[in-house]
Amino acid sequence: MTRVLVIDDEPALLRAVSAALKARDYDVATVGTGQAAIDAIALTPPDVVVLDLGLPDLDGIEVCRRVREWSDVPIVVLSAEGSEERKVLALDQGADDYVTKPFSTAELLARIRVALRHRKHVASPEDDAVLRVGDIEVDLARHVVEVGGRKVELTPKEFAFLALLARWPGRVLTHRTILQEVWGPEYGSESQYLRVYASQLRKKLDDDPVHPRLVTEPGVGYRLVDPAAEAPD
């Protein structure tokens, strides 16, 4: 049974989220403070953590940072709308993903599933030669991308951008992460590059604006999803 630790200081939200998770056969534990969260993660390590950033005692970002010092447990943070900086900070401090409040349960469950999948992926580090996200196939060895069997011509940077996102399907990657991985460690704040490349990629992938494969997370970063598998909101 997958064990989920939910940390939020709102009893009502804890009730809602834990009911939804229990109904899907997760083993759920809930706590209301950052300190209790750190203790709980240390004592009975969960498989995934859902962490609210606005806690009464410790800042959620601080909790992320401290937990990351000794644990690889996937962390999905819950954050209020309009605080992109805090989301980026949380991701930089080791959070795996985030959900913006108010959220639908389906959205939270999807993020939890993605976080759990990646943890397994990390556990078996052998690099796949071909990455698949929905109908996109990225052949790393041959440097070839196909969308629904149609071959797509990409520049080396576009390929690297897409390959990076395809390695972490469904997961948000921050501007900084993408810039440093694709352009190099001296980059980090040139998010306007990414807008240009993302727009070119979307054109080449023939993305449907309503159900895009390459999803923009405004102010935070990008994620590559399988529109067919994304649960409706």
Partner: peptide, 13 residues
């Protein structure tokens, strides 16, 4: 937003 978050989570579920 705080009560809305709970309401939306439950209602969508």
């Amino acid at each position: 937003r705080t009560p809305l978050a709970s309401i939306r989570a439950v209602a969508s579920d």
